[in-house]
Design a protein around this nucleic acid. Structure first.
Length: 584
RNA sequence: GGGGUAGUAGUUCAGCUGGUUAGAACGCCGGCCUGUCAAGCCGGAGGUCGCGGGUUCAAGUCCCGUCUAUCCCGCCA
C-alpha cells in the first residue's frame, strides 16, 4: 500500500536527496525513447518526474493524460539550464524508482487547462472535470476563505450563526417561490426561502440580539450572468440599532474581507448617495463608480436648438467622453443599436472639435449655443457627447446603460479596484400599474423614515424608507433596512399594499402577532455572497464561483435536473400532471 | 414572454454567390526518439453538419418550425 509523503506543489531545493512518494494526475507526458518526463499534478501544484529505467519506461509509455498514478523516487536538483522558473517546484525533479497506475483515464471530453477552448454546455455537463482547472479551484478556495473571514468577524462581534428552516410557508410577495409538495398534507405545499427574512426578525423578538447565517436562498425567476436560482446570502440582523450602526458594522466587515482575502485596502467611510441622486447622476440604482462620466440634464440646451426630435420631450440626458479616436461611425452605430434595444428612439451624438461642435446633430445647434454648451459642461477638444431624449425614466435608464457600455469599450473597468457606495433613501413604495396597487420597493417589513410616517396615510408614494443597499463596481452586493417593530404600523403597510384584513391574517398573522409581545427596534442586511466572491475573484459570471451551477434555464446539465418522477411518487403526493396539447 | 449570438470529427473551429469524396488544429491509435516542460518527427482511424419539415436536378449552405447553450429586456419584495 502507498502513502504519500508530499503533495505535488511543495518540493524544492531543501528536499534534494530525500525519498518521496507523490500521488496525482498525469498532467503531461513527454516521451523521448530512453527517458520520459511526466508532470504529475494535484491541487497544490505540479512536479516533474523522470523515468529512465527500462521497466519504468515500458510502463510510462502506456500512460496517458489524466491517469492517476503514484510515483516514488528521489528528489534531485535540476542542472541550471533545465530549471523551470514558471512553476514552484521548477528547481527539482523526482527520479522515479517505482510507478504505480492507480486509475486509467479515458480521453477527456473537455480540455482542463483552457476553459475557453470548449463550450459552456460541454463544461457544465462534465463539471467535475472542469473543476480540475486551477483557476476554478482557486475561485472555490477564495470563496471558502471569504466565508471563513465572515464567520470569524461576526462571531467575534457576538453574532450567533443560527440555522433557519428550508421548508417554510409560501407568502407570495415578490419573487416566485420554489415549492415542495407535502406528502402528509395532500394539496399543500412548502416553499423554499427567498431569504430567511421573517425568521431573523423573530430572533430579534426572541432576544437573541445578534444573528447571522451563511445560507442558501431560492427564487424561481429568470436568470442572468449574476443570478442563480439558488444562491447564498450572508444574512444578519441586530437589535437596538439605527441606520448608522448597521452601516458602520458592514463597512468594517467588507473592508476586513477585502483585506484578508485579497490584500486590498478599501477606504472608510464609504460614500453615501441617495436613490434619486444615483438615478440622476448614473441612470441606475447600482452605479459603477470606478469611472466618472456622469449624466447631465441637457434639456435647457436642446430646447434652444432646432433639433425637432428633442422638442416636446420630458427629458434630455447627456454624457460626454474623451474621444481618442475610438468612436468611429461603426462604434457609434453599435451604441445606437444598444440604446434602441433598450427602448430608446435613438442615440444622438456630436463631437467637440476646435472649440465647436461637429457631426451628428451638431448642425441643429447654432454657434452661440455651441459655445454655451461647451463652456457650461466644460467640454474639452476631442470629446464626444451622447444624448437621449424621452420620458425621464427611460432617458436616464438607457443613457446609464450606454455609460457602462462605453466604459467596457474604453477598458475603464479595472477588476482589481473596488469602489463601494451606499445607496439610501429609497422610496418605500412604487405604484404597480398592472396590479393597480402599491408594492414595496424593498420588502414590506422595511420601516419608513420617522419624518415621513405622517405621509403614510396621505401620500404613500412620497414616503422614504430606512432601506440601504451597498453597490460595488456596479453590482448590488448587499441590501437591508431598519425594520418596522410596531404591529399597527406593519398592518398599515399591508393595508396600503391593498391587502385585506383576512389576507393579512392568513399570510402574516403569526408575524404581526409576534410583533405584539415586546419587539426591540432592529434592522439588518443581507449580502449576495456569490456576487461578493465574484468581485473578490475578478470574474463577471456567477457560474465561475459556484461548484455546480445551473444554466440560464435553471437546469443542471450534469445530472439532468429537474427530471420527471415516477407514478408512485406522484401518487404519494396526490399530484397529477396536466398534459399540454402539444404532448397529446 | 421578447430580442441578439452560437450549434459541422472526441474538442475547438473553417467551409464564399447552393455544385466532385465536408477540411484544419488539438486529442486519440501505431511507430521513431536520452533533457523535455503545450516536446518533436512519420503514419492512421474518426462525421446522422442539433432535430423535424420544405424549396431544388442538387442543401452544411436557402426557407419554416423546434430544441439546447449564452447575453440582454421584462421579471428578480
Amino acid at each position: 500500500m502507498f502513502s504519500r509523503t508530499n503533495n505535488c506543489g511543495e518540493l524544492n531545493k531543501t528536499h534534494i536527496g530525500s525519498n518521496v512518494l507523490l500521488c496525482g494526475w498525469v498532467n503531461s507526458l513527454r516521451t523521448h525513447g530512453k527517458i520520459i518526463f511526466i508532470d504529475i499534478r494535484d491541487r497544490y501544484g505540479k512536479t516533474q518526474v523522470i523515468l529512465d529505467k527500462d521497466d519504468l519506461i515500458d510502463k510510462g509509455n502506456s500512460l496517458s493524460n489524466e491517469d492517476v498514478i503514484s510515483i516514488s523516487g528521489k528528489v534531485s536538483a535540476r542542472t541550471k539550464e533545465f530549471i523551470n522558473k514558471e512553476i514552484a517546484t521548477g528547481e527539482i525533479e523526482v527520479i522515479a524508482d517505482k510507478l504505480e497506475i492507480l486509475s486509467v483515464s479515458e480521453p477527456l471530453p473537455v480540455p482542463i487547462h483552457d476553459r475557453e477552448a470548449s463550450t459552456e454546455e460541454q463544461r457544465l455537463k462534465y463539471r467535475y472535470l472542469e473543476l480540475r482547472n486551477k483557476t476554478l479551484q482557486d475561485n472555490l478556495l477564495k470563496r471558502h476563505h471569504a466565508a471563513q473571514v465572515v464567520r470569524n468577524f461576526l462571531s467575534k462581534k457576538d453574532f450567533i450563526e443560527i440555522e433557519t428552516p428550508v421548508l417554510m410557508k409560501s407568502t407570495p410577495e415578490g419573487a416566485r417561490d420554489y415549492l415542495v409538495p407535502s406528502r402528509v398534507h395532500h394539496g399543500k405545499f412548502y416553499a423554499l426561502p427567498q431569504s430567511p427574512q421573517m425568521y431573523k426578525q423573530l430572533f430579534m423578538i426572541s432576544g437573541l440580539d445578534k444573528y447571522f447565517q451563511i445560507v442558501k436562498c431560492f427564487r424561481d425567476e429568470d436568470l442572468r450572468s449574476d443570478r442563480q436560482p439558488e444562491f447564498t446570502q450572508i444574512d444578519l440582523e441586530m437589535s437596538f440599532v439605527d441606520e448608522p450602526d448597521i452601516r458602520n458594522l458592514v463597512e468594517n466587515l467588507i473592508t476586513t474581507v477585502f483585506k484578508e482575502v485579497n490584500g486590498v485596502k478599501i477606504k472608510k467611510p464609504f460614500p453615501v448617495i441617495t436613490y434619486n441622486e444615483s438615478i440622476q447622476r448614473y441612470g441606475t440604482d447600482k452605479p459603477d463608480l470606478r469611472y466618472d462620466m456622469e449624466l447631465n440634464d441637457f434639456k435647457e440646451f436642446s430646447n434652444k436648438s432646432d433639433f425637432k426630435s428633442f422638442k416636446d420631450l420630458d427629458y434630455v440626458s447627456m454624457i460626454s467622453v474623451k474621444d481618442e479616436g475610438v468612436f468611429s461611425r461603426k462604434i457609434i452605430d453599435e451604441l445606437d443599436n444598444h440604446a434602441k434595444s433598450l427602448g430608446a428612439k435613438g442615440l444622438a451624438w456630436m463631437k467637440c472639435k476646435n472649440n465647436a461642435l461637429d457631426g451628428g446633430i451638431a448642425r441643429f445647434f447654432d454657434s452661440n449655443l455651441q459655445s454655451d454648451i461647451i463652456s457650461h459642461y466644460k467640454l474639452k477638444d476631442n470629446s464626444i457627447c451622447f444624448m437621449i431624449g424621452d420620458n425621464s425614466n427611460l432617458a436616464l435608464k438607457v443613457l446609464g446603460s450606454v455609460r457602462t457600455k462605453i466604459a467596457e469599450m474604453l477598458n475603464l473597468c479595472d477588476n482589481t479596484i473596488f469602489k463601494p457606495v451606499w445607496i439610501v433613501d429609497f422610496p418605500l413604495f412604487e405604484w404597480d400599474k398592472e396590479e393597480k396597487r402599491f408594492e414595496s420597493v424593498n420588502h414590506p417589513f422595511t420601516a419608513p423614515k420617522d419624518s415621513d410616517i405622517e405621509k403614510l396615510s396621505s401620500n404613500p408614494e412620497d414616503v422614504t424608507s430606512k432601506g440601504y443597499d451597498i453597490v460595488i463596481n456596479g453590482y448590488e452586493v448587499a441590501g437591508g433596512s431598519i425594520r418596522i417593530h410596531d404591529n399597527e404600523m406593519q398592518k398599515q403597510i399591508f393595508e396600503i399594499m391593498n391587502m385585506k384584513e383576512k389576507e393579512i391574517n392568513e399570510k402574516f398573522g403569526f408575524f404581526i402577532d409576534a410583533l405584539k409581545f415586546g419587539t426591540p427596534p432592529h434592522g439588518g442586511i443581507a449580502f449576495g455572497f456569490d456576487r461578493l466572491v465574484m468581485l473578490l475573484c475578478g470574474v463577471n459570471n456567477i457560474r465561475d464561483i459556484i461548484a455546480f451551477p445551473k444554466t440560464t434555464s435553471a437546469s443542471a446539465l450534469m445530472e439532468e435536473a429537474p427530471n420527471t418522477i415516477s407514478e408512485t411518487q406522484l401518487n404519494d403526493l396526490n399530484i397529477s400532471i396536466k398534459k399540454n396539447e402539444k404532448d397529446i
